[in-house]
Design a protein around this nucleic acid. Sequence first.
DNA 1: TGTGCACCTGTTTTT
DNA 2: CAGGTGCACA
Length: 785
Amino acid sequence: MRGNKSYIELKKTALMQYFSRMNDMQKKAVFTVNGPLLVLAGAGSGKTTVIVNRIANMINFGNAYFDETRSGNADDIEFLEAYINGETDDLDGLREAVAVNPIKPWNILAITFTNKAANELKERLNAMLGEEALSIHAATFHSACVRILRQEIDRIGYGKDFTIYDSDDAQRLIKSVMAEMEVSEKNFAPKALLSEISFAKNRMITSAEMKENAGADFRKKTIARVYSHYCARLKESNALDFDDILLLTVKIFEDFPEALDKFRNRYKYILVDEYQDTNQVQFRLVSLLSEQHRNICVVGDDDQSIYKFRGADITNILSFEKQFEGAVVIRLEQNYRSTKTILNAANAVIAHNEERKEKALWTNGDEGDKICWYKACDENDEAQFIANEILKHYKESGKYSDNAVLYRMNAQSNKIEQALIKSGIPYKIYGGLRFTDRAEIRDVIAYLNFINNPFDMVRFERIVNKPKRNVGDTTVELIKQISTDLKLSPLDVMRNCDEYAPLSKKVSTLKTVAAMFDSLIEKVDVLPLNELLDEVLAKSGYMAYLRGLGDEGVNKIENVQEFYSTVASYTDEAEDPNLNEFLEEVALYTEADRDDNSDDRVTLMTVHSAKGLEYDNVFVVGMEEGIFPGIRSMDSPEDLEEERRLAYVAITRAKKKLYLSNAAQRLLFGQTQRNLTSRFIKEITRELIEKNDNTISLRNQMSNEAVTAVHSSSLQQQLARNKAKSNTKAEAVEYTAGERVMHNSFGEGTVLSVKKMSNDSMLEIAFDKVGTKRLMANFAKLKKI
DNA sequence: TGTGCACCTGTTTTT
DNA sequence: CAGGTGCACA
């Protein structure tokens, strides 16, 4: 008896020691392996570290810490004593001495929202666990579901090679559905309709249910009709939108218990990150999967729930304990990021919210600088102030990249950009056009999608006449009609167009087009992807079409060239590269996934996209009633609370110094507005703030000069010049023919030719292994060797 | 079937 | 202010 008690104590001490880098609350989360667990992880509380260590604990030691069933033998006790005394740090020995039901890595499913978070998690698990980490399924909700659907979707009448429609494809589809149903875009904005449909899908409301609930409401009835048609068209195209990916997975789990069982047995331990952002479908999915084993751990922060407008349901996290009986709740409130001052400000602001789980961040760190509140005369003054402050910080630290400027809406970025350009400060903007949003890239992707799935009507319409093939709208409409009526793919219809009287005039044209696509389809499983892409660009005439555009086309060709490297790196990294999987990756990929911290620039982005990031110095601009909080949120207490959470997110991004600014007047959307100071500034305890009111000093000076100066033409020219300079990458390297270079996916090669283009150059390189490629110097990430 | 002009309308956007 | 888009017209 005595021996066993001391074994338990020794075991706990040893495990504490193994995870000694964690604080007590973090350790508790790490050791709690079985049953439902809610981790309320405040901003900067080391959330990812906890997740990684918790998984490491599960795999190495299982439920060792809380277990009371295993009694140690003399060897175990001897080992533990040696371990505790620092005589050994052998992990395998420790495993042997303490482990209780260690969990197989492939029984763990870790779900995140972004690819970036999933990748970070994978990397850190890899660093901590080595090879075993590879069998852990760490993925986004969407990619995890796609993986399930690829196995199971034929149960509900879709083909396994289904296509994924992103928001842009979905919008095209909804427009075409509306046209077909004669619903005017004037009365129903396609975007709004789409978001209504998305909300319905997120809440698992079918079009039939929506119709029922509509009663006599014409608007709702119309939406329900469009919704129903939209779904039908998706299915005919064997396509899924983002919401379908989750919804159909849930549907299969609900309707086919044997499918659900399969995945329940596989994923016995489930972990969900950013749980405050889950919607109802995601909740349902997680519930279904975890119902049996009940090993569900969710991590999140209700104070950082900022995606209600996209269907996120904060009640998921607020009522977790009700929904999962017996849940353990752990609060991580120690912050390792910000100064006391910043945390106190954040706490003061968020305390004004009613609907939240009480918690308060604290830190052992310094008091730090006071928060700077800058009252600007107008938006130019605000921007210039920020530029000046950044220059000051740069003088001290020699770095631009620890500064970030956050705004409520993208429209505010312009003035900041101008000021930074004027001061010669390099910056990068998040949230502009995504690379894959560019028309030419979408076209190329559409070709690939169509040859992968010839039922894809949206992609068919996009490219069938691009470049011009003499297939006009009327013909396309006819083909669509026939395909829908006969349940054929548009490609089938073109192939056999002589069988359909309405197409009689176009027989030879359509046969040629069909033959072109067929010849490409033949190559899908034959050629490696990069060669397939070459073939597509050549046979479709798309490349020739871009070349024919002259100057305009140059940039587009560059972008297509860059797309090559996406293909190449996929081919290199994938286990079994294939077109279908590549297209899936492209569809679920976001611009944020490829952010490179490589160069030293100030970051500009919306508060939303800043979630999860941190910077030494953070500037939150436009702290004005009507902007932040936004005008649309001011009449609903619920929306206002979300704005406040957004403010909380913004404030807690700062590690050392926080700047809040507002302007006495600002020009926005062509109108000059005078807004009151944001309530969020007023909610901060006054002692934490150092106010800097420029509206007083400037009233005494000749203010107009400073303001109008920005618009003067000589300055404009200077701006343009600076911009050109800052846009060229600092490390723009010159290459000459004959040089040896290294490319991170193509390997080593010799430069054959260099062709100057605007502010880049196109290189023709003979690679030793993969043959001759054309690459843009600035994109190619080449190394001279 | 392409171009150009007038008009309109402006949060946030992980997939 | 500025980008996107619908629509008219050639």
